[in-house]
Design a protein around this nucleic acid. Structure first.
Lengths: 158, 158
DNA sequence: CGATAATATGCAACTGGTTGCATTTGCAAC
DNA sequence: GTTGCAAATGCAACCAGTTGCATATTATCG
């Protein structure tokens, strides 16, 4: 239990939002893990405790919690998003497109970039749980090796 | 017509993929615009010329063309992706989360970051048509102004 | 130029996620 | 404790995108 569950609940209620069993369940699932979970995983787990929870409620509440800043949405690209309780300092993810290994890195690495974007373009970038794709150290030397579902039917090519 | 249409077709056929009317149509639509188009837009436009084109074909071919490197997939986050013919040099997009204005920037800006990720983590990042969110110059001073759909029912809070 | 075989297409069923609306519930005031 | 009402939920319909499979089409070879 990394982030105090009761703090999260306070954040909700002091802002005038209701504390419902579903919200409490979501927050407790998220604060009891130290990684990110997909909406679908959250729904499935929630149903173990509470078979009636509805998927629209899960999605709506994740959106609310994200807007309130209690939860961070990590966008892994291609429509795959996961959620985690908002912890400081923010961090980012390097995702290997070959072995799917994920490296968490601190946000310092992006400070220069952020400054450059501000200077050159006047743009204030949201540097909050970015995910970047690429190849991890191990896969750079042996890329095609343990690839997943390489296109199977190259007819007479390459 | 920025990128030679016939070059794209050659890339397909020399690698052993067939040239079909649907593929030709997709490539010509993409090479005749100088911006990115969504799968849905492509489908709609394609149907004007060819009412029978099927959405699964559009999606499958966009995936194929992306794998072959003829087309780039630009991921705008939250599952919104668009496609454009792969032009050099690669560029990135700064998207304002307030006014949705989009700034195209060259990939040089990311060279430092890329080098740092390689040095520190041994990670070779795909720096290819990234999209970053944030606030553009104009919206930083007047953020809440022309916002879209601000959450409407804060009950008695903030 | 016609036959062949593998590829590409169209279709229909399905999945993850979203939306509108009727019902229920949390919470505050009485 | 009861009441009132906005907020939250559950449901069912819906939408974009994906998948499996039968059919149609392309490119090649005879």
């Amino acid at each position: 239990m990394k982030t105090k569950h009761s703090d999260l609940i306070d954040s909700l209620t002091t802002r005038g939002y209701r504390l419902t069993p579903q919200r409490e369940l979501l927050l407790s699932m998220l604060s009891e893990t130290d990684t990110h979970l997909s909406a679908d995983t959250l729904l499935t787990r929630a149903r173990k405790a509470y078979p009636r929870v509805n998927k629209s409620v899960v999605y709506r509440n994740l959106e609310l919690l994200t807007e309130l800043g209690l939860v961070s949405r990590v966008d892994f690209g291609g429509g795959h998003v996961e959620y985690e309780v908002h912890r400081h300092p923010h961090h980012h993810h390097l995702v290997c497109r070959n072995c799917h290994h994920m490296i968490g890195i601190s946000s310092d690495t992006f400070a220069d970039l952020q400054r450059q974007l501000a200077d050159r373009y006047g743009f204030s970038a949201d540097m909050d749980h970015l995910a970047l794709f690429g190849l991890c150290h191990d896969c750079q030397t042996s890329e095609p090796a343990n690839a997943h579902a390489q296109r199977s039917h190259h007819p007479h090519a390459l």
